[in-house]
Design a protein around this nucleic acid. Structure first.
Length: 1075
RNA sequence: GGUCGCAUAGCUCAGUUGGUUAGAGCGUUGCAUUCACAUUGCAAAGGCCCCUGGUUCGAGUCCAGGUGCGACCACCA
C-alpha cells in the first residue's frame, strides 16, 4: 500500500522529466515550489519510523529531540539544533542503522502560564477570576495552537522526526510516569517536604528557583546601628527585628570576648536575643565586621541557623507585610516599616551613620518585584542522601561522566559540569503555579494549603490512581415531561443530541482511557454519540443503572410529590410498602461495589462514567460523605462533570486534599530520554534505543536540563541517558547581540528566512563555519550566500542531466579514461572518506566545508569545464552526481531529494526498489592513488600561470596567446585542455620572452603584449621571495638536530622542496638575464 | 568573589595527537560574460595567528605570566 503511494507521488512529481531534460528543468532552484511536496513524500514513505525502514538493520542510533517549549513558536536557535540533529539522523539512516529521532514538546510550566496570564491581563482578568479548572482549559487551548505551529515549523526545517512516536511532557502517559518516578524517589527517602528559606515573589505569590532570580544594581543606604555592645551594618534594618544571631569572623580580635554569649538587644523598644558565633564567611573588612543574622529572611543566614542552631523568627509575610512578631510594626509593608523603624532608631540615638551604598538587589525575573527570602514549606529532592543504589544522586550523576560513560562535546564542559555538580544543593521541586504536574501527594486531615499549611498532616503518596469523571446522560422526553424515569428505556431527545455533541471537544481534552456506561438506553446512547469521536474502549456496567422506581416509573413527578411528600426527601431508607422501589441504601451498595471493581480492574486509568441522576448523587454521598439534606439540594446536570481520583483503591476521599502546588518543569523533562520510550514498562523501544546515542542541545541548559537528565536516568533506571552530549552555541545577531523574542529587531524568524532562501540554505548557514560550544552569528547575507550555493548545486545537476544522453543509474563506479577522470574520481573518494569521518566525529562544519570545496571548486570549476572539452563522460558525470547528492543529503535534504527524483527516482527504484534518496546507502570510500592528483595539480598550475599572466597584462580572454613551450609529457597529453582553459595556442616561436611560472618555462613572442620592465621587476621580486624560502629550507636541513629528530617523511618532503626550488631559482635567474 | 573560555585577513569564523610558504565565506580591486549557473566565471590585494617568556629540531597549536573581552555560578551583611 504505502509503496504504491510513493511511486505515484514521485511519478506525479517528475512526470515531465523525460528526455530531453534540458528544457524542463528550471534555471534556478525554487525551494518554495518543492519543499512541502518533498516533506510529504518522505512522510508518506514512513521511513522516519525505524520500524518501517527497509533492509536488515542491526545497529541502533537514536536521538530524543529536546522538546521545544509550547510557548508559541520556534526561534532560529531551534533551527540550528534541528539542523545538527537531522544531519546525524539522516547520516545514520543512510548508513543502515535502525535510526530513531523522537519528537515531542515541553509544557514549560511557568513560561506557558505566564503567556496565558499576560493574555488574560489584557482582557482585564487574572487566573484567580477564572479559577483553576477554567484557567487550565484556557492554557490547553493555547497549547494546542502552539503545538500545531511548532509542528509545522519542525517540518519546514526538514526534520526527519518519527511523528508516530510524538510525546508531550504533560500527556496522561508522561504524567503517570512522573508520578511513578516521584513515588519511587519518595519511598527511597529522596523527596522530602521541608521548611526552607526560599526566594518568594510577593507579587507573583510564588517561589522562584535560584535561576529565576535576577539581580539589579540599586542605590541604597547602608545603615550602621548600635547593636547592644557592638555595631553592625545593614541595608535592611527592618529585618533586624527578626535577628537571632550575631556573626563575626573567627580571626577578628575585636569580638573574641563575646563569642558564645547570648546578648539581649534593645532596638528602640523592640527587644531581641541573639547568639554570638564565629564563621569564616564573615568579611572583617566590610562594615563593622559584625553581622546581625536573620535566619528567616536570608538564605545565608538560614544556613548559619542550621549550622549554629539559631531560632527562626519570621517578621515578614507572604504579602511583603510585617508579621505580629515585628511588634508595633506589624501590618506595615516592608518599606514603610523600614522608614518608621529607622526614625525610631534615630530618635533613640542608635543610628551611627548611613552611607550611600550600591546594593545588588534580587528581583523576580517575571515582574521585577524585589524578591523576599521567606521560610516556606516546599518539596525537595535530596541530592546528598545515599539512595537505594548505594550512592547519592550527586555521586551517580558525577560518576556517569567521570567514568567516561558519557562524553561531552566539546570537552571543556565536563569541567563546568563537575563544578556545578560539586556545588549542587537540594533541588526545590515545588512551584506555586497551576499549570504543570500537580504534586502527586495527598494530605489527610488538613486544610490542604500546601506551602503555607502550618499543621502536621498525614501524607499519602499513592502508587495507583484511578480517575473517574462522572457525567449524566442527555435529556429524554420523559425528563422534559417531568416523568419519573428509572430503569425504563426512553430514547434521547433530538435537541439533546446536539447538546451532547457540543460537549465533545471538552471531553476530548480530558484524554480518557475508556468509557463505562449504564446499560439503560439514554446513557448508552449518550456514550455512543461521544465515542463516535473519542474512539476509545467502551464498557457497559449494570452497577451503574438508575434507581428502580417500581410502580412510580413514568408517573408525573409533581403529582407524586403531592401524593408522597416524604419521597422527595430522599431519605436513605425510604421505602414504600408494596412498591418495588430501590432505596438509596441499596444503591449505595451497588456503587461501592462498582468503585471497588473499577479501581482494581482499571488502576491508573482515566474513566468517563456515564450514569444517572440518583447514581451521581450516590457517588457524592459515598465519596464526599454527603448527607440527605445536601442530596436534596443537588441535582446533577449532564454538562457538569464530577471529578474523582481514587488512591490505591481507597475511595473515602472526603478528607483527602491534593497538594495544590505543581512540579518544577525540569522534573518531568529530566525523565525525557526514557519516559518517551515507555518506561517503566520494559518496552522494545526502551531496550533498543536507550541510552540514546546523542543528546544535542545548547550549552545554556547544561545544568537545567542535561544534568537533571543524568541524575534521573542514573538513579531511576540505573543507566546513562545518552552516550554523547553535543552542546551547540547560542545564536547571535550580526553585531553579536543575543537574539531575543522580546526584541524583534534582533530576532530573525526562521520561517521568514526559509521563505526567502529555502530551508536548505538556512541549514547550511547554521552548520558551516560553526563549531561545537561556540556562539554563531547569523544574518541575512550569510543565508543568501548559501542559497547561492544550493543554486549552484542545482545548476551542476542541470548541466549534467542535460549533457548525458541516457541517464542510467549504476551501482558500480565507471572506469577513468583520462587524467582528469582519474583525478576527480580520486577526489570524490577522498571527499567521501573525509565527510564520513567528520560527521562521525561531530565536525559538521568541516564536513560541509569539504563537500562545498569539492562540489564548487573541483567539480564545477574544473572537471565540468574539462568534460565540455573532452566529452564522452556520461557515466562518470552521473556517477559523481549520484554520489554528491548522497553526501549532501544530510545537510541539504530538500534540494538533493528533488534532484534525485528528477534524475534517478525511477531508475533507483528499479534497482533498490527504493525511490527515495533519504534511505540510499551511504558509500564506502575506496582507496585512491596519489599520482593522478599530483599530475593534475601540475596541469592546474600551467593553466593558472597563463590566467595569471593574462590578468596581469590585462589581456582579454578573447585574445588567444601564442606560446611555445618545451613540451613535456603532461603538456603534450593535455594540450587540448590547456588550449581551451587558458586560451593559448602552442606555436613554434623561438624568439621571445621566457616566462617562468612554477616549474614551467614558456616563450611568448615579443610584441605589444609584454612590458619588459614590468616583467623584469616582477621576476626579480619573485626570485627574492623564492631565495628567502630556499635559505630557510637550507638552514633547516643543515640543522643536525632536525635531520636526526624529525620524522623521516618530513625531512624527505623538505629535501624535495629544496630541489624543486633550486630548479625554479635557476630558471628565474636565466629569465631575468634574457629580459 | 569562584569557575570556564575566547583573542587568527576589513568583517564572520575554521584550523583535534605540534610538522607544506596559515585557510574559507563575505567584503574590496581588476577583467569577463549568447556557453548549466550574474544566485556566474577568471584573477588579485589583504595576516608580528593579542603581548612577554618557556618547552621543542620545529609552536597559531603545548606550558607560565600579562593585557583585553566574554560566559556561567555564587552573592555579602
Amino acid at each position: 500500500m504505502r509503496y504504491i503511494n510513493i511511486i505515484n507521488l514521485f511519478r506525479q512529481l517528475n512526470f515531465w522529466v523525460t528526455i530531453p531534460y534540458m528544457k524542463e528543468i528550471p534555471k534556478a532552484y525554487n525551494p518554495k515550489a518543492v519543499e512541502n511536496k518533498i516533506y510529504q513524500l518522505w512522510e508518506n514513505s514512513g521511513y522516519f519510523d525505524p520500524d518501517e525502514l527497509p533492509g536488515k538493520r542491526t545497529k541502533h542510533f537514536s536521538i530524543s529531540l529536546p522538546p521545544p517549549n509550547v510557548t508559541g513558536k520556534l526561534h532560529i536557535g531551534h533551527s540550528a539544533m534541528l539542523a545538527y540533529q537531522d544531519i546525524m539522523i539522516r547520516f545514520h539512516r543512510m548508513q543502515g542503522d535502525r535510526t530513531l529521532w523522537l519528537p515531542g514538546m515541553d509544557h514549560a510550566a511557568i513560561a506557558t502560564q505566564n503567556i496565558v496570564e499576560r493574555e488574560l491581563k489584557k482582557e482585564g482578568q487574572t487566573r484567580h477570576d477564572l479559577g483553576r479548572e477554567k484557567f487550565l482549559a484556557r492554557i490547553d487551548d493555547f497549547v494546542a495552537k502552539s503545538k500545531d505551529t511548532i509542528k509545522m515549523q519542525l517540518k519546514a526545517m526538514g526534520a526527519s522526526l518519527d511523528w508516530s512516536r510524538e510525546q508531550f511532557t504533560l500527556s496522561p502517559e508522561l504524567t503517570k510516569t512522573v508520578r511513578i518516578a516521584f513515588k519511587k524517589m519518595y519511598d527511597d527517602g529522596l523527596i522530602y517536604r521541608g521548611d526552607r528559606v526560599v526566594n518568594w515573589c510577593p507579587h507573583c505569590q510564588s517561589t522562584l528557583a535560584d535561576d529565576e532570580v535576577e539581580y539589579k544594581e540599586e542605590q541604597g543606604k547602608l545603615y550602621y546601628l548600635k547593636y547592644g555592645p557592638v555595631a553592625i551594618a545593614t541595608t535592611r534594618p527592618e529585618t533586624k527585628l527578626g535577628d537571632t544571631g550575631l556573626a563575626v569572623n573567627p580571626q577578628d580580635r575585636r569580638y573574641q570576648k563575646l563569642l558564645g554569649k547570648e546578648l539581649e538587644i534593645d532596638l528602640a523598644g523592640h527587644k531581641i536575643k541573639v547568639k554570638v558565633f564565629a564563621d569564616k564567611a564573615v568579611d572583617m573588612q566590610f562594615g563593622t565586621g559584625a553581622i546581625g543574622v536573620t535566619p528567616a529572611h536570608s538564605l545565608q543566614d538560614y544556613q548559619w541557623a542550621q549550622k549554629y542552631n539559631l531560632g527562626i523568627i519570621k517578621v515578614i509575610d507572604e504579602q511583603g507585610k510585617m508579621t505580629s512578631f515585628a511588634g508595633k510594626y506589624s501590618g506595615l509593608d516592608v518599606l514603610t516599616a523600614r522608614k518608621k523603624f529607622v526614625e525610631n532608631l534615630t530618635k533613640a540615638g542608635l543610628i551611627e551613620k548611613a552611607e550611600d551604598y550600591n546594593n545588588n538587589l534580587s528581583i523576580c525575573y517575571r515582574c521585577g518585584t524585589p524578591v523576599e527570602p521567606l521560610p516556606s514549606k516546599q518539596w525537595f529532592v535530596n541530592v546528598n542522601k545515599k539512595t537505594s543504589r548505594g550512592k547519592s544522586l550527586k555521586q551517580l550523576a558525577s560518576e556517569a561522566v567521570k567514568s567516561g560513560q558519557i562524553k561531552m562535546i566539546p570537552d571543556k564542559f565536563t569541567k563546568t559540569y563537575f563544578q556545578w555538580m560539586d556545588n549542587l544543593r537540594d533541588w526545590c521541586i515545588s512551584r506555586q503555579i497551576w499549570y504543570g504536574h500537580q504534586i502527586p501527594v495527598w494530605y489527610k486531615n488538613s486544610s490542604g494549603l500546601g506551602a503555607q499549611s502550618p499543621r502536621q498532616e498525614e501524607v499519602i503518596v499513592p502508587k495507583h490512581i484511578t480517575e473517574l469523571v462522572l457525567m449524566r446522560h442527555g435529556i429524554t422526553d420523559w425528563n422534559k415531561e417531568n416523568k419519573v424515569q428509572g430503569i425504563t428505556n426512553v430514547p434521547l431527545d433530538e435537541l439533546s443530541i446536539d447538546e451532547i455533541k457540543k460537549m465533545i471537544p471538552r471531553l476530548k481534552r480530558e484524554r480518557f482511557d475508556l468509557i463505562i456506561t449504564s446499560p439503560l438506553m439514554r446513557a448508552k446512547q449518550t456514550a455512543e454519540i461521544i465515542n463516535e469521536e473519542l474512539k476509545i474502549p467502551l464498557a457497559i456496567n449494570d452497577l451503574l443503572k438508575e434507581r428502580n422506581y417500581g410502580e412510580f416509573e413514568g408517573r408525573n413527578n409533581a403529582e407524586l410529590r403531592k401524593e408522597y411528600p416524604d419521597y422527595f426527601e430522599d431519605k436513605i431508607n425510604f421505602d414504600i410498602p408494596g412498591n418495588q422501589e430501590e432505596s438509596y441504601q441499596k444503591l449505595a451498595k451497588r456503587v461501592k461495589t462498582f468503585l471497588k471493581k473499577v479501581s482494581q480492574e482499571y488502576s491508573d486509568k482515566k474513566i468517563l462514567v456515564i450514569c444517572h441522576h440518583s447514581v451521581i448523587r450516590t457517588f457524592r454521598m459515598i465519596i464526599d460523605h454527603w448527607d440527605a439534606k445536601k442530596l436534596t439540594a443537588y441535582s446533577p446536570k449532564f454538562n457538569e462533570l464530577v471529578n474523582y481520583k481514587i488512591l490505591d483503591g481507597d475511595y473515602k476521599m472526603a478528607e483527602l486534599r491534593q497538594d495544590p502546588d505543581t512540579l518544577d518543569t525540569w522534573f518531568s523533562s529530566g525523565l525525557w530520554t526514557f519516559s518517551t520510550l515507555g518506561w517503566p514498562e520494559k518496552t522494545k523501544d526502551l531496550k533498543e534505543f536507550h541510552p540514546t546515542s546523542v543528546m544535542e542541545t545548547g550549552y545554556d541548559i547544561l545544568f537545567f536540563w542535561v544534568a537533571r537528565m543524568i541524575i534521573m536516568s542514573t538513579y531511576l533506571i540505573g543507566e546513562r541517558p545518552f552516550d554523547n552530549v553535543y552542546l551547540h552555541g547560542l545564536i547571535r545577531t550580526k553585531e553579536g547581540k543575543k537574539m531575543s523574542k522580546s526584541d524583534p529587531e534582533t530576532a530573525i524568524d526562521p520561517l521568514d528566512m526559509i521563505n526567502q532562501f529555502g530551508s536548505d540554505a538556512l541549514r547550511l548557514s547554521l552548520v558551516i563555519g560553526t563549531s561545537a560550544g561556540n556562539d554563531v552569528r547569523i544574518y541575512k547575507e550569510k543565508i543568501e550566500g548559501y542559497r547561492n550555493f544550493v543554486n549552484k548545486l542545482w545548476n551542476i545537476s542541470r548541466f549534467i542531466l542535460s549533457t548525458v544522453k541516457n541517464p542510467a543509474y549504476s551501482k558500480t563506479a565507471p572506469r577513468a579514461k583520462t587524467l582528469s577522470d582519474q583525478w576527480i574520481l580520486g577526489e570524490l573518494e577522498k571527499t567521501t572518506e573525509l565527510v564520513t569521518k567528520k560527521i562521525t566525529r561531530f565536525e559538521f562544519s568541516q564536513a560541509g566545508e569539504q563537500l562545498r570545496h569539492f562540489t564548487w571548486d573541483e567539480l564545477a570549476d574544473w572537471y565540468l569545464e574539462i568534460a565540455k572539452i573532452e566529452g564522452g563522460k556520461d557515466k562518470i558525470l552521473l556517477w559523481i552526481l549520484k554520489r554528491i547528492l548522497i553526501l549532501w543529503h544530510p545537510f541539504i535534504p530538500f534540494v538533493t531529494e528533488e534532484i534525485w527524483q528528477i534524475a534517478f527516482g525511477e531508475k533507483a527504484a528499479a534497482i533498490y526498489e527504493l525511490p527515495l534518496l533519504m534511505i540510499e546507502p551511504w558509500p564506502k570510500p575506496q582507496k585512491t592513488e596519489a599520482a593522478a592528483s599530483k599530475r593534475f595539480s601540475s596541469l592546474q598550475n600551467v593553466i593558472n600561470s597563463f590566467r595569471n599572466f593574462r590578468a596581469e597584462y590585462n589581456i582579454p580572454p578573447t585574445t588567444l596567446i601564442s606560446v611555445s613551450a618545451k613540451k613535456n609529457i603532461l603538456i603534450k597529453k593535455e594540450e587540448k585542455i590547456i588550449n581551451k582553459l587558458a586560451r593559448v595556442k602552442f606555436t613554434d616561436v623561438k624568439k621571445g620572452i621566457h616566462l617562468t611560472y612554477g616549474q614551467f618555462d614558456f616563450i611568448i613572442p615579443l610584441g605589444e603584449l609584454i612590458d619588459v620592465k614590468k616583467e623584469k621587476k616582477r621576476s626579480e621580486l619573485e626570485l627574492e621571495i623564492k631565495k628567502k624560502y630556499y635559505e630557510s629550507l637550507k638552514k633547516k636541513l643543515s640543522n643536525k638536530q632536525f635531520v636526526e629528530k624529525a620524522p623521516k617523511e618530513i625531512v624527505q618532503r623538505e629535501r624535495e622542496k629544496q630541489i624543486e626550488l633550486e630548479e625554479i631559482i635557476k630558471k628565474l635567474k636565466k629569465k631575468i638575464t634574457t629580459l
